[in-house]
Design a protein around this nucleic acid. Structure first.
Length: 488
RNA sequence: GGCGACGUAGCCAAGUGGCUAAGGCGGAGGACUGCAAAUCCUUUAUUCCCCGGUUCGAAUCCGGGCGUCGCCUCCA
């Protein structure tokens, strides 16, 4: 049984999809006026992981993530760069996929764009006007919040409370300061579309309502996004959608916590943001993803290079264990396969670990705990493998395969390492450049050979000098029982 | 001002009424090695911000205090 923390009810609830065996999800995607930053990346990775776990549990998942390609910030940026707003938005949509791919975020079933859903948006607004929830003031259309009784139910505040704060800009043409724009009258030089109220473009909130209703219908299962979207964005989505459809919009609202820098929210206005691709210059995507999942999704996550580096070292541990496993598996030829006490223990552990992993994920997608279970798996693999010395009796290939499979399952759910689609096996080093630089490789091997000759003669001074010298060039040598391993 | 979240080891981070307070990084010790490196193993919080209270029993519940952060305006 999966439990989900629902922002709407402020508690964990049993996940019961509207249609048995199917889960529909809508996640608010980025406004594409720049490369995405780490704060944008968190919901992508978090909800991608939710999706992956639901798939693992056998649900058919319909996953929609929009792009906001019509927006004030896009228009502003386009003006600065002398580019058409829609072209600029499309450019960053393409760039988005580069980053998302690096983080192993699966493609949504549909990535709808605002600019391609103007018709649906207009129809929705028309309905809201017809039903008395919205009004047109000379080409600007607003949603009248006082007409929607449930306004404030998601963010947990009342209209009166919000106005007590009274930091809302005064806008004479609105009936209530909290009313928000559904349709904005066109200004010269801005992208606009014809509508019954004159040329203009959609307000921010209406797009998500229109697209979610179109692709998932009202009463779909999970709506996700960042914590800061609760108000006003999601509050307004609920108001519009439920006013129009006369029934609940989304059943479970999930919100991820912020990425912080020195404990302060990472945001564009504070200027303390880090672009995903800047980070990817220093760390592989799998490390970034692993780091993003190392904390529960609702908690804040503080970012700095040190923490990523710590994650990277932790990930090495997982990789090593899997590499050892693969090596052992390749080496186990003729084995008695006798199921001794060691084997029974190990088999039992594997079962327990699988259960623990699922229990962690069932509990509101507790990836931090799930990762701990993953480390436990690595340890159990190591402990089991340590019982066998090279040349002696081998480990059980059956169990090793089972362990490998479990590792791959954990990996598939968390999406950390790439997977070989044909074998289902984990790919540990997707970014390693293979094959090129033949000459350099050959030179290194020549040097290594010479060093080996020195070592044979116990000429340690020469051997160490070569090792130190190569190290300074960024090449590390390891003398192992299987021979010398080197790494650039 | 209104509303909300959080405070667990040197650092990160699970756990929210009861077995020995997960896991990772770092540290320490050991195995391996010519020495290293890498790896593996072991170890690392008598205690969960502080003070009261409830309870047979609290990191976990309640009250108060201190501190940090967030939302209320575009933001993932």
């Amino acid at each position: 049984m999966i439990e989900v923390y629902n922002t709407l009810t402020r508690q964990k609830e049993k996940l019961e999809p509207g249609q048995p065996g199917r889960v529909s999800m809508y996640v608010c995607g980025p406004t594409t006026y720049n490369y995405i930053h780490l704060g944008n990346a968190r919901p992508l990775v978090v909800f991608d992981t939710v999706r992956r776990y639901l798939l693992y549990k056998g649900y058919k998942v319909t996953y929609i993530q929009n792009f906001t390609d019509v927006d004030d910030k896009i228009i502003k940026r386009a003006g600065e760069e002398g580019e058409e707003p829609l072209d600029l938005a499309q450019r960053y949509i393409n760039e988005y996929f580069t980053d998302a791919d690096a983080l192993h975020v699966m493609r949504a079933d549909k990535h709808p764009k605002v600019s391609e859903h103007i018709t649906e948006i207009i129809e929705l607004i028309q309905k809201l006007i017809a039903d008395g929830y919205a009004y047109n003031v000379d080409g600007d259309v607003f949603f009248e919040v006082r007409k929607f009784p449930g306004y404030g139910k998601l963010s947990g505040r009342s209209l009166d409370e919000m106005q007590a704060g009274a930091r809302v800009e005064v806008n004479e043409i609105k009936r209530d300061p909290m009313d928000f724009a559904l349709w904005k009258k066109a200004k010269p030089g801005e992208p606009s579309w014809p509508s019954p109220w004159g040329d203009g473009r959609p307000g921010w909130h209406i797009e998500c309502s229109a697209m979610a209703l179109k692709y998932l219908g009202s009463g779909f299962d999970i709506h996700g996004g960042g914590y800061d979207l609760i108000f006003p964005h999601h509050e307004n989505e609920i108001a519009q959608s439920e006013a129009a459809a006369k029934k609940p919009f989304a059943r479970y609202w999930m919100h991820n916590g912020f990425i912080t820098v020195n404990k302060e929210k990472m945001s564009k206005s504070l200027g303390n943001f880090f672009l995903v691709r800047e980070i990817l210059d220093k760390f592989p995507g799998e490390v970034v993803r692993f780091y993003l999942l190392s904390t529960h999704y609702r908690s804040p996550l503080d970012f700095d290079d040190e923490k990523l580096a710590a994650s990277q070292r932790g990930l090495e541990r997982l990789k090593n264990s899997y590499a050892r496993l693969s090596e052992a598996l390749a080496g186990t030829g003729a084995d008695d396969g006798a199921a001794g006490e060691e084997e029974r223990q190990f088999a039992l552990k594997l079962d327990q670990l699988k259960e623990s992993f699922e229990a962690a994920m069932d509990d509101d997608f507790n990836t931090a705990l799930a990762i701990a279970v993953w480390f436990d798996l690595a340890k159990e693999i190591n402990v089991y493998l340590n019982k066998f010395s090279p040349g002696g009796p081998g480990a059980s290939p059956e169990l090793l395969k089972q362990a490998e499979k479990l590792f791959a399952v954990f990996n598939r759910v968390l999406g950390v390492f790439k997977e070989d689609p044909s074998t289902g096996r984990v790919v540990l080093n997707e970014n390693e450049d293979s094959g090129n630089n033949d000459l350099v490789d050959k030179l290194i091997e020549l040097i290594v050979d010479i060093r080996q000759q020195a070592r044979k003669k116990k000429d340690w001074d020469t051997a160490d000098a070569i090792r130190d010298g190569l190290k300074e060039l960024g090449i590390t040598l390891q003398d192992t029982p299987q021979g010398v391993k080197w790494k650039k």
